[in-house]
Design a protein around this nucleic acid. Structure first.
Lengths: 335, 335
DNA sequence: GTGAAAGCGCTAACAG
DNA sequence: CTGTTAGCGCTTTCAC
């Protein structure tokens, strides 16, 4: 563990007794080089353990091989799966991924966005933490292409990839009504978050479409996992009329289930439960939880494709992609 | 969305009518500058949306503000939580995090390691995908400090942060024996992975310590989630003597539970289940699953601290940190 | 087919 | 206190 500089292209050139330009050409396979020199360069690279400095390469060639991704919280499996899929897509195109998270805090989001911009990525793929998405200005000011995912911000001219939240929630709520539920509680993180707002709108629309006899209410529980269950529990304390809960978030689903268990409320007999986001463990809960499956990997693929498209045609019209979700019925919503 | 270059420090200097050095000094707060010039610089920065090019800064100042992390798979919540915690730690020290994943493939691991090294990070924190960990050479050759986490490689002189797998598994197995189980199946991903091997060794040691009357067996199910359940299911088909399963991986726990459910085997009555890794949903399965909780965030904190320590004292003796796990008893292991 | 030299954006050293 | 200059590691002309 001796502390020294990493070898540079100059070190390689000296050892191989060629010019730096030749080393560069050999490694990039850009111009044809005499076989003997190629051999000398390769063995010098090998013995020095040389790896080209990507930042220096970008500066000179003006070609970045890095993309940035900004998500609210990597500890949330939805975002983690998104980043995982995005990294795969980026790798396929030969790009590295710089990951940053905002912690659902608009101020931190701005800071992190600035940091990403500082790396001069080819583009940034972001899941904003609020509707204002002021962080966005940092990307546009620096002329870095931006793809917005999952939560559509107020001021939309940008490439957007999201799920059809409205329709998914509409279908989910309709299913509950059709199963006989007349009073449904939507458990939201924060209604001002666009995707959550869209889901709520879908529920309201379903209620309106179904007719006068159904009623819905909403409960906002925030995005801090620990705080959710007490809020739900306390709400259940006050009300007894609802017969179904529709959780609009994976974390909220966990909290709902916990609150119901804690109070000994039988699912689905006394209370049905439907949640946004589907995970394998939902097959194994007692009872298994009905869920709306979001196509996370596809979202990442589309986001990457949107960025690639933007690079090809920088001036083309921003495109909005809406992917559809799938309702997975299990026992928590009865038969 | 007009395509243009991001503004450089030269653009700022021209607009503020000062030298580039002054801009640099103002932004870094390095030397004292006349208030009027400070003002001019700030307003130029503001109006241009200037963000310094971090790569250029590093090249000149020889001070990197990026660290790399290499994990097997971001889609696995264990690794995702690790990266999430690591990013927080890095952010606190003002570092960005470059994330790469190896997909449990040693060849890809090498490629990704080389890519990380290409960014000239201050260090790389890696969870190797196998015992050989050949990828490691790329870091050492380039003189990039390495912290190895979770899975201790064969050739140990490096800073290491891991969990006391042996003791945790020993305690877990002992608990099963004490509850009366005499034939326990360990469900491993791959015994050659060091942490898994250590866990298995702990189980064997517990069996030896408990006495002749207990017997253990092992089943390797690999690391591809889809393949696990069929393997377990088929194994259950052939054997009926065991009364407890000890899953050595979070993914395997899910597969075990699935296989047991699928075959209608009652837990814990016909089969007890204990798993490595604890998640909130394990409270909600039917029945709730007993688990060994790994301190993921602490591992990340320690890994970051190890890297920081290595930077302070590059030549100090490599340190091995072992954190302890916690046994969380739930109904899947009976009363 | 090869090498010398310029320059990407930035900061450290030095000069005024 | 401010500006000029050199140079980090690399690629890209442009000579030869």
């Amino acid at each position: 563990l001796i502390h020294r500089r990493s070898p540079s292209i100059r070190d390689v050139a000296e050892r191989a007794e060629v010019s730096m330009a030749t080393v560069s050409n050999v490694l990039a396979g850009r111009r044809s080089v005499a076989p003997e020199l190629v051999e000398r360069v390769h063995s010098a690279v090998e013995s020095l353990g040389y790896v080209a400095d990507i930042a220096a390469r970008r500066m000179r060639s003006n070609q970045s091989t890095i993309a940035g991704v900004l998500v609210p919280d990597l500890a949330n499996p939805f975002f983690a799966l998104f980043v995982a899929a995005l990294e795969k897509a980026a790798l396929r195109s030969g790009f590295d991924l710089l990951v940053a998270s905002s912690g659902e805090d608009p101020e931190l989001e701005k800071t992190r966005m600035r940091a990403l911009v500082g790396w001069r990525p080819i583009g940034i793929i972001a899941i904003p933490c609020d509707t204002d998405f002021e962080a966005r200005q940092h990307a546009t000011a620096a002329a870095v292409p931006l793809v917005v995912v999952d939560r559509v911000p107020n001021d939309p001219p940008a490439d957007v990839v999201a799920v059809d939240n409205y329709k998914a929630a509409f279908d989910g709520a309709m299913m509950l009504f059709q199963k006989g539920h007349r009073a449904v509680l939507a458990v939201a993180s924060d209604l001002r978050t666009t995707n959550i707002g869209e889901r709520h709108a879908g529920i309201l629309a379903a209620a309106a479409a179904f007719g006068d006899e159904v009623e819905t209410s909403v409960l906002e529980v925030g995005s801090r996992p620990d705080a959710m269950r007490p809020i739900i529990s306390e709400w259940l304390n006050r009300t007894t009329t609802i017969t179904a809960m529709f959780s609009l978030t994976n974390l909220a689903t966990l909290a709902c289930f916990g609150a119901l268990m804690e109070r000994g409320i039988l699912v689905p007999k006394q209370m049905a439960l439907l949640g946004f986001d589907d995970y394998e463990w939902m097959n194994f809960t007692g009872p298994p939880i009905s869920a709306i499956r979001q196509p996370v990997s596809e979202m990442a693929e589309h986001a990457w494709a949107a960025l690639a498209g933007r690079l090809r045609e920088p001036l083309s019209q921003p495109r909005v992609t809406r992917l559809s979700c799938q309702l997975v019925l299990r026992r928590s919503t009865g038969n």
